[in-house]
Structures are given as C-alpha cells and as structure tokens.
Amino acid sequence: MEHLTEVEILIVEDNPHDAEMALRALKENKLTNKVLVVHDGEEALDFVFARGAFADRPKTSRPKIILLDLKLPKVDGLEVLEEIKSNPVTKVIPVIMLTSSKEESDLVKSYELGVNSYIVKPVDFDKFVDAIRELGFYWLLLNQQKI
C-alpha cells in the first residue's frame, strides 16, 4: 500500500473502458503521475478520507486532483463531490467532473457544490485528449508543487 501515499491523480470511474481511456489520455498528455482508479463513490470517499479499505493510508497524503464520473454505483458522483467540498481539509483538492452529456441540471448542481471544472467525455478519443490538455491545471501535476 506504500504506493498509495504517492497517488497524485484519483480517477473515479465505474466503466473500466472509460477508465482505461482516461489513463491513456493522461499518458498522451505526458501526465505520468501516480494514478489510482477506484470504481464507485464509496471507494472514492474511503480513499480521500483514509477509511474503510484505505484506513491504513496516512491521512495527511492527498491526491492532487480528482477526476470524478457523475454517474456512479452506490454513492453518486454528486454526493462524493458534496462530501469532499464540504470538508475544510479536502475542499482544496481540485475536482473535475466527467460526464456523458451537458445535462443542465447535473452541471448546475455540480457548480453549486463547488466543482472546479468538467469534461464531457467525447466519443472521439482525440477530443478527450484535447479536453484534458485544455483543463489548464496540468502544470500542477507536472511541476510537483505543493498546494
């Protein structure tokens, strides 16, 4: 579990193919930081707050960025977002919402809860790569700077 202390990017995605494509898109953007993929909201929260299966993880170590799918089993993406953003310690972690459409209600809700940005997962993979690049904060992951 030692590697978990080094996780800098947390991907929360239930679809393994989407997760794989996300990893590939990161790689194509030369973002080779330590990445962890979890598959539902509960797992994501357990990791962020170092509890449950991740109880042994040092609480002080936190991911630098979270890519969060909107539609998740067990605990929904919006609920995960709410919990992270309502905690004074974790709310500083940038959260990027991954979504299949521009469903207005979901986006409006996400912004109310304090999301930092969002990406509509495109069918065209190249556009996904572009979208990751255009987020504008990958420098954060490149230069290893502490927040």
Partner: peptide, 22 residues
C-alpha cells in the same frame, strides 16, 4: 430516459471509437 440514453448509449460508442483509435 434521456439521461439514461446520454450516459448509457454513449459509453459503448466511446469504447468502440476509442479502442478503434488505439
């Protein structure tokens, strides 16, 4: 239904397209 379509129908398309690309 719309929500479901937008999520569920697109995921396979993304996979088809993405993996074709890979």
């Amino acid at each position: 239904f719309t929500y479901s379509v937008s999520h569920d129908l697109r995921a396979p398309l993304r996979a088809i397209n993405g993996y074709s690309d890979f």
